[in-house]
Structure formats: structure tokens, C-alpha cells
Simulated assay, not measured.
Amino acid sequence: MIKTLTIDTKKRDEMIDITTYVQDIINEEMKEGIVVVQSLHTTAGITVNENADPDVKTDFLRRLDEVYPWEHTLDLHGEGNTAAHLKTSTVGHSQTIIVTNGGLQLGTWQGIYLCEFDGPRSGRRVSIKTIEAE
């Protein structure tokens, strides 16, 4: 089964921790297997990163801005958000996480994040697919 998480973002660039939501789905559906978490957007990605120190998110987004600066000129495709597309391609649109004994196999400081690169937006969708081990 595929579940969909819908999120309204508040900033142009932000990282929203969705770990608890994904774990809640695991709690309902399985003990062993994998879960795939996928953004349904070309300007919002999914990553696994540190969830203990909020400065990590700030540094992460700042460094991406250094590599892909937001330019206030129109791109050839007319939307002015090429930097957001590049950031999403760099971060990736999905993550696959192992589930063991009903828990996400994440390190002590790891969390799953929706990375917004072209916000604020309403109705960002993340698909979550559980695949139970046989």
C-alpha cells in the first residue's frame, strides 16, 4: 500500500523532518522490510541527515545555495527556479530505508527530511511505500 503525506511549506528553502510520520506508517503496517519515501515534485527532494542539531539544516541549505545560487532572472523555461531543480537532482527525490523489528534503521542522529527548494508551497506530496519482507 502507498500512503501520501501532504505538507505545506513556509519558506523558499527548508528541511522538514518527516521521520515520525514514516515511523507511524511502519507501526501500522509491518515489522520487517523496507520503506521507500519519495517526493512527487521536481523542486522538492528527500534526504536522510542529522536531526539533533538544527544548525546542520541551516548549513546544508546555505551550502546548496552557494553551489546553486538563487537568481532572480527568468530561466529559459520561464519559471526562474532552475536552482531548485538542480538542488532536488543533487539531493535526490527518494530514500529507501530498512525496517527491522518494526523500526526504521536510522543512526542515532538521523532523520528523514522533505527538502523544499522552491517554496513556500501548499500541498507538497510525499509517497511512502512499505515493502514487507517475506
Rank of each mutant, 00 (worst) to 15 (best):
M1R: 06
M1Y: 09
I2F: 04
K3E: 11
K3D: 12
K3R: 15
L5S: 04
L5V: 08
L5F: 13
T6H: 02
K10F: 12
K10T: 12
K11F: 09
R12V: 13
E14G: 02
M15G: 07
M15H: 01
M15I: 13
I16A: 05
I16G: 07
I16M: 10
I18Q: 11
I18V: 15
T19M: 12
T19K: 09
Y21N: 10
Y21S: 11
Y21W: 15
V22E: 08
V22P: 06
D24R: 14
I25K: 05
E28W: 06
E28M: 13
E28T: 14
E29C: 08
E29W: 13
E32N: 09
G33D: 03
I34L: 09
V36H: 07
Q38M: 12
Q38N: 13
S39E: 00
L40P: 01
H41L: 11
H41E: 08
H41C: 09
T42V: 13
T43E: 02
T43S: 08
A44L: 08
G45W: 05
G45M: 09
G45P: 13
I46W: 08
T47A: 07
T47E: 05
T47K: 00
T47R: 02
V48M: 06
V48C: 06
N49D: 05
N51L: 12
A52R: 15
D53R: 07
D53I: 14
P54V: 14
V56A: 08
K57G: 11
K57Y: 11
D59H: 10
D59G: 04
F60I: 12
F60S: 08
L61F: 11
L61N: 11
L61C: 10
R63V: 15
Y68L: 06
P69H: 02
P69R: 02
P69A: 04
H72C: 01
H72M: 07
H72Q: 04
H72I: 00
L74S: 00
L74T: 02
D75G: 12
D75V: 04
D75S: 15
H77T: 15
H77M: 15
G78Y: 15
G80Y: 13
N81S: 08
N81G: 01
A83W: 09
A84I: 03
A84E: 02
H85V: 08
H85K: 05
L86C: 09
L86V: 07
S89A: 14
S89Y: 11
V91S: 06
G92L: 13
H93L: 12
H93F: 14
H93G: 13
H93T: 14
S94Y: 14
Q95K: 15
Q95G: 07
T96G: 08
V99A: 06
N101K: 15
G103A: 13
Q105C: 14
L106H: 04
T108L: 13
T108P: 07
W109S: 06
W109C: 05
Q110P: 00
G111S: 08
I112V: 10
I112C: 01
Y113H: 01
Y113A: 00
L114D: 01
C115F: 06
E116G: 05
E116I: 07
E116V: 06
F117T: 01
G119V: 10
P120S: 01
R121W: 05
R121L: 04
R121Y: 05
G123T: 15
R124F: 01
R124W: 00
R125V: 10
V126H: 02
I128K: 04
I128L: 07
T130K: 12
E132N: 01
E132W: 04
E132K: 14
A133G: 01
